[in-house]
């Protein structure tokens, strides 16, 4: 990654300066998802017991069935948690539709020309090629993260719709239930494939260390923002300057008004 070399003092300032990246609501939703996935993924895998598909080890099935007191209870737990997950997520989206969901979608789903370029160069660089080619500046989320979000959103929809079909199997035709199972499975597969990268990048990859902590604090350093999400960084800076401008104007106006209100007091 090629960044212009900055003076040390400037670098320190940037590292110390914190910029707010995540809203609290988004943070909570993220960790809620993590919790749900931790409960749903293992139980889901343990449920799939068709020897013909051979998708989960017998010992795991046995363990989980014993743990939950039988197949039916295991399934009941899985769909109860699943329904809760659907409910909370749907609730969050509906309640925060304008405040959070629209900005969130814009940040995470709109692919710009820069994103496309990034997608052309980044994978090559990860394989050690095109090292000298500059990466186009990225928004709050880079194109890789945006792509992952597509997988997550489509996958989540697939999981939820097929899950609802299976949960309420008395009202849906058998053909739908027959297809819901592979759809559920393949949707989970798609998310999990992305999740492996997501977790690695977020929690292990040193360059993205700040991203990990930002999922608790909601903030990243200006340095990190400038390096990884340049576009967004300058946008933030612009916003900050605008704000400062505005505040300055307001303060000056206030001072002037104050003077005008008490002309003869002094």
């Amino acid at each position: 990654m090629s960044h212009p070399i900055l003076p040390l003092a400037e670098r320190r300032r940037l590292r110390e300066k914190q910029i707010k990246k995540h809203q609290l609501a988004n943070l909570l939703t993220h960790w809620f998802n993590v919790a749900m996935w931790l409960m749903l993924l293992p139980t889901g895998i343990a449920i799939i017991s068709s020897p013909r598909l051979a998708l989960s080890p017998a010992i795991m099935q046995e363990m989980f069935r014993n743990l939950f007191g039988g197949t039916a209870n295991l399934i009941r737990f899985h769909y109860s948690v699943g329904l809760f997950w659907i409910f909370v997520l749907a609730f969050n989206v509906l309640i925060g539709f304008r405040k959070y969901f629209i900005p969130f979608s814009r940040e995470r789903l709109l692919l710009t020309r820069d994103d496309i370029d990034w997608l052309k160069i980044k994978p090559m660089q990860m394989l050690g090629l095109m090292k000298d080619k500059p990466l186009p500046p990225q928004d709050a989320y880079n194109a890789g993260q945006k792509l992952y979000m597509y997988a997550v959103i489509l996958g989540t929809l697939g999981i939820m719709v097929s899950g609802v079909v299976m949960t309420f199997h008395t009202v849906f035709p058998p053909a739908l239930i027959q297809w819901a199972q592979p759809v559920h499975w393949v949707s989970v597969g798609a998310v999990v494939a992305g999740l492996i990268i997501h977790v690695y990048m977020g929690a292990v990859f040193p360059e993205e260390k700040e991203a990990f902590f930002s999922m608790f604090s909601g903030k990243v350093s200006a340095w990190y923002a400038r390096a990884h999400h340049e576009k967004w960084y300058w946008e933030k800076v612009r916003e900050e300057l605008e704000w400062e401008e505005k505040v300055t104007v307001e303060v000056e106006a206030e001072a002037r008004a104050h003077e005008a209100a008490a002309p003869g007091a002094d």
Binding site: R52, L53, Q178, Q181, P182, V186, G189, A190, A193, I196
Partner: peptide, 17 residues
């Protein structure tokens, strides 16, 4: 559905992951 799952989707997801 079961055949598609077994023959197509399992290899695809295994490959992806």
């Amino acid at each position: 559905a079961e055949t598609a799952w077994r023959r197509l989707l399992i290899p695809a997801v295994v490959a992806g992951i």
